[in-house]
Design a binder for these strands. Structure first.
Lengths: 344, 344
DNA sequence: CTGAAAGCGCTTACAG
DNA sequence: CTGAAAGCGCTTACAG
């Protein structure tokens, strides 16, 4: 209530500080940034006013001058997916201390949602974009990559115009590895549950698995490969369909972690014993795999490593936007479980 | 290369549009916002220029005028935790279409990290803050709440100065329920693994459990209650300590989901049979509980519901910042598993 | 209906 | 060393 206590609701700006310190806003700015010499006395007065008023520079306004928002957009299909979540935390841990903030968007792999999210981020003038794309906005993303740092996460886009970076797992080799494992364990009646083949990861995984089996002399029957949405529901439905139409299968390979979870749900509910009556192989993070009722055998993607690489590459490109496009492929890791029966 | 194709690297601004349309920037702004009458002809010319140049208004610059950033800060202990992840997705789904973006920060429940994150968000002039606080910046958060919409998520702060909203689960009742369950099943030798009692949730949960047992005539021995960091490692270590010093325990109640996971890890590794030789009860989301090697009995927090409420309350307060503080308590849900042996 | 001008909160070349 | 001024990209009251 005192006349002194000018603690009104309005945000305190550089003008307020200048006024109570009895200096110009230029001087306030200079002591805040410490990039110009300012006489000790004025410096003291400014600091005192800053403390008194609780002044905090508006980094948005700063950004206007610098044309830098110090913000990165993180666009993924599902921010609920543990893989992406670990990556975002890693990025935040690295970029946060450097002053960047992360704006996250979930697209559900939906074209419009993705386009809307990207537009929102662009109009927010983020400094860079990290995208796990739906694969349905390729041209748009390619065009953006010409003027803004873009790092593709896992999924490539089909456009020669793209001029950003890519980081992902070695899907082909990972699934080739699993195919060899299945073969060596004696499996020949093999089914695959995969997803949208317009998405590069699924394409690479499926091809890696199928080609390897063919090379080993055990070509897959096309009818045993089915595609389903990469969700738990998708997996639940798909495995039912697959097993009904192909009761002869001894092993099923599933190309996505959420899909696998759904499939296991089905398997448990239907009392199908793993690996006794059915063997299972899958790709992707399995949360708390060691607490499951059977230990799955799968390839995992090392999200921590991916996150670190993404942050490093983004930082690199932020510093030099003209940098040539890079491809970083991270080897996946084989997790030996007990979900594959030895038939050999 | 054509003189026409002015597709340079610079961002296209309202000035560029005005120039190529041959109108003033005021007119461009008016047709972009559609909030003032503009003659059809000019309107057409502007739209044409916009399309041609691929113009997209800078919402940061707009925000400067409106003093609105259309951004919400989401500060949680761990953005990797599925509970918070589902909440963030729900919020994003609701607030996103309304034009808001979500800036997420992970604090690891560390005081400095939390303070730094909040400062960053403030200087980014977010329109509101959703905080799952570490409980170590109470005064600071309380002071912020006076000038900015703040919604506390789960954890309260100990300051009468706080003037935002709170939303959380009914921790006391939830744990009272579990205590009754333990009692009815005949358990009397009960241990508790809890965490930092300066955090409101842990306090409420522990008290709810302990008081209820006392009311039932089975007061807990203080030595059987131990506190540990709410992480998997914390749970792993704690249960080892607890069981070694108290081999007589028939049931252990764990107050946090990550802690529980760690504890189960230990239990499985040490070949302790659940519920045959030890019964388990816990609080919080259990991801894929139905795929675990035993079905845990626990209380879950309905993150979807929490997320919706948080978004609604935030929206409310955004519209009316002077709104009186609210408390929304969401009932937790009992998930009956098979981790408690019937001794009765 | 339309444009020139002020202003949102900053920074920094420019001129002392 | 310091201040007045221009400018970052917008919006909107003001004056036609």
């Amino acid at each position: 209530m005192d006349g002194d206590m000018v603690q009104n609701n309005e945000r305190v700006t550089i003008f307020d500080v200048a006024e109570t310190a009895g200096v110009s806003i230029s001087t306030v700015s200079r002591v805040m940034n410490g990039n110009y010499p300012v006489k000790q006395e004025l410096r003291d007065r400014v600091n005192k006013a800053v403390a008194e008023l609780g002044y905090m520079p508006d980094s948005v306004a700063r950004g206007m001058k610098f044309k830098r928002r110090y913000a990165i957009g993180y666009v993924v299909s599902d921010i609920t997916n543990r893989h992406f979540t670990i990556i975002s935390k890693t990025i935040d841990d690295i970029l946060g201390p450097l002053g960047y903030s992360l704006i996250v968007c979930s697209t559900d792999s939906n074209q419009e949602k993705e386009a809307r999210a990207i537009k929102m981020l662009l109009s927010n003038r983020v400094d860079g974009l990290i995208i796990n794309t739906s694969g349905k906005n390729d041209e748009y993303i390619a065009s953006i990559s010409k003027t803004l740092p873009v790092v593709l996460l896992h999924r490539r886009i089909a456009s020669s115009e793209f001029s950003g970076d890519y980081i992902g797992s070695d899907n082909y080799q990972a699934c080739a590895h699993l195919a060899r494992h299945a073969f060596i364990m004696g499996h020949r009646e093999i089914g695959i549950i995969t997803s949208d083949q317009s998405i590069s990861t699924f394409r690479e995984r499926t091809i890696g698995f199928v080609e390897t089996l063919a090379e080993l002399g055990a070509p897959m029957l096309p009818s045993r490969i089915i595609a389903t949405p990469y969700t738990e529901e998708g997996g639940y439905t798909a495995i039912g369909t697959l097993l009904e139409s192909h009761p002869e299968l001894s092993l099923v390979m599933i190309m996505n972690n959420a899909t696998t979870i759904g499939a296991i749900q089905y398997i448990r509910e239907h009392g199908i014993a793993v690996p006794e009556s059915l063997s299972l192989l899958s790709f992707g993070e399995m949360l708390n795999a060691n607490l499951m009722y059977f230990k799955p055998t799968y390839m995992t993607q090392k999200p921590l490593l991916v996150g670190k690489e993404v942050a490093a590459i983004m930082l690199d490109r932020l510093e030099d936007p003209t940098h040539a496009g890079r491809e970083v492929v991270i080897e996946a890791q084989f997790e030996q479980g007990e979900s594959v029966k030895d038939l050999s």
